[in-house]
Amino acid sequence: MPRLIDYASRFDFFRRAAFVLVRDVGPQALSRRAVAAALGISVNSVRRLLAEDADLRGLALDEVERRRSRSLWHRPRGLAGADLALDLLRQLLPDEEARVPEELVWLRLALDARRLVVGEQDTAAALRAEHAIADRGFVPEDLDPTTPAPGAGDDPLAGRLTDHHTHRALVVDRALALVGVEEVQERRRTLALLDGLTLHACLGRLTPEEAVSALEHHVASLATSATAA
């Protein structure tokens, strides 16, 4: 009888291996050879199952999203008002030690994919042209200062990152509405607080419990100010 191969399970291992590499080293560590080494298999085995243009960062992000979805299974039910607002915001925070790795991987992927908008004088192409002038006194014909730097262009993760940021904003808006707050500035402040608490928890500067405590204080303050108004 021919052996049945569970390809879905193998891809699950690839996602987990990519996640571990980003968590422990960073996105720059991702390669088919590194994934193979993490799984203890040959690189040819990985190449047979992953397309040449497959984005390994996307696999790591798949694992982040899988873990986030799994954490939602254990959320409390029947909450309302400020209690529900707090629970919604906690979902955007590593509120338990087990959730810190997924947020750390998320931050590393988001920062790796980030493309800053810079002035013309700050691009790699402009820098290459300036160096050529300093070194040779002129810009060679084959060095076009308007040519994008190697690796520049749209990042394949950009759309997924944007979707996540949109989702975060919608969750924050719903939480604020539950405590009677609908100010744009408050949304920005709450998003910034969540980002800051997440970063500090990932860096070990705050425990998840301390981060949750700070978030509880923020929600209570919002509810109090809304009631007073």
Rank of each mutant, 00 (worst) to 15 (best):
M1N: 05
P2G: 11
D6A: 10
D6R: 11
Y7E: 13
R10W: 09
F11V: 07
R15C: 14
V20T: 13
P27W: 06
P27V: 04
Q28W: 09
R33Q: 14
A34V: 06
V35T: 08
S42R: 13
S45H: 12
S45G: 14
L49F: 12
A51P: 03
E52Y: 00
E52K: 12
D53F: 00
D55G: 04
R57V: 04
L59N: 04
L59K: 07
E63K: 08
R68F: 14
S71C: 05
H74F: 11
R75N: 03
G78E: 07
L79M: 08
A80T: 13
A82D: 09
L84T: 06
D87W: 07
L92E: 15
P94T: 09
P94Q: 01
E97V: 04
A98E: 14
L104F: 02
L104C: 04
V105S: 00
V105D: 01
W106M: 03
R108A: 05
L109T: 07
L109P: 02
L111Q: 13
G119H: 08
Q121K: 11
T123P: 01
L127I: 01
E130W: 06
D135N: 04
A149L: 06
D155I: 03
D163A: 15
H164L: 06
H164G: 05
H165L: 11
R168V: 13
A169G: 04
V181F: 02
E182I: 03
E183V: 02
L191H: 11
D195P: 05
G196P: 08
L203Q: 14
L206G: 01
E209W: 01
E209G: 10
H218D: 14
T224Y: 11
T224H: 13
A226V: 08
A228R: 15
